[in-house]
Amino acid sequence: MDEKKATRQAYGEALAELGKDKNIVVLSADLTDSTKTNLFADKFPDRFFQCGVAEQNMVGMAAGLALSGKTPFISTFAAFVPNRTLDQIRISVCYNNANVKFGITHAGLSVGKDGATHQALEDIAIMRSLPNMRVVVPCDYEETKKAVKESAKIKGPIYLRLGRSKTPMITDKKSFFKIGKANILKKGSDVTIIACGIMVHKALTAAEELSKQGIKAEVINAHTIKPLDKKIIIDSAKKTSAIVTAEEHQANGGLGSAISELLAKKHPTPIEFVAVNDSFGESGMAEELLKKYHLTKKDIILAAKKVFKRKS
């Protein structure tokens, strides 16, 4: 668990492996090295399309390629896609149910020093509101590789939310992964922590600490936010009757919202949200920002204790 690698690195490597399938094409909006799509471009230059800083056209081109039978992966920073290209995503991709894969990097506060303009914290909310779109937030390097490869096999639009920073390796090559299926990483009976992306590792370390303090936390890696794995979440809510959600995203509309919508309907349960509270980020080191905006192990522990107390 000491080794760290970035999910964007896994993305680039997986694309380069997928490239032997001649239907795979990759589009980048200038940010080729940053998104690691250069690894594909170097191997398969004929199937790599450099689209310049013209993201709307890139999304439309990808839709056209998909409607003509190709499997395009498009890449840039999450600050630009979805935000800048929402209309194209909604109509050209989702309404057409075009087979476009969004390999989007630099999501969240952990982008770091570039500051608020480049720290996408709304993308999950935007993407999960769109019909036909799937939303996947892998927790680490190996999981990203699996997500990229599996997404190439699924027909229809998929948003893969990836990060900039090197993050701990939680899963290995053999760990079970399937889009749409959540993973229980640690069993517990007092409280359930449901996390995605970089918050999964923090959830696991929070659970260790909680167990020392006598609270048995269950940890669920909800890498697929849409479609949500309803059964695992409802069953865990029934068992623990207390939920914490953790995500590097606005509280409005993200993983926590998705869980709340499900449980409000199927099994009302007290929930606490570890997420950004309706604000922009700022420049700083990733870990400094996560601390300032309350996205740490400590914040998960506090939330777990709070929701544990709310259990009647």
Partner: peptide, 17 residues
């Protein structure tokens, strides 16, 4: 403002094939 981008993508696909 969507159609031409889609047509460009389709044309690229035809060319690849």
């Amino acid at each position: 403002g969507h159609g031409l981008s889609i047509a460009v993508g389709m044309t690229l696909a035809e060319k690849l094939d």
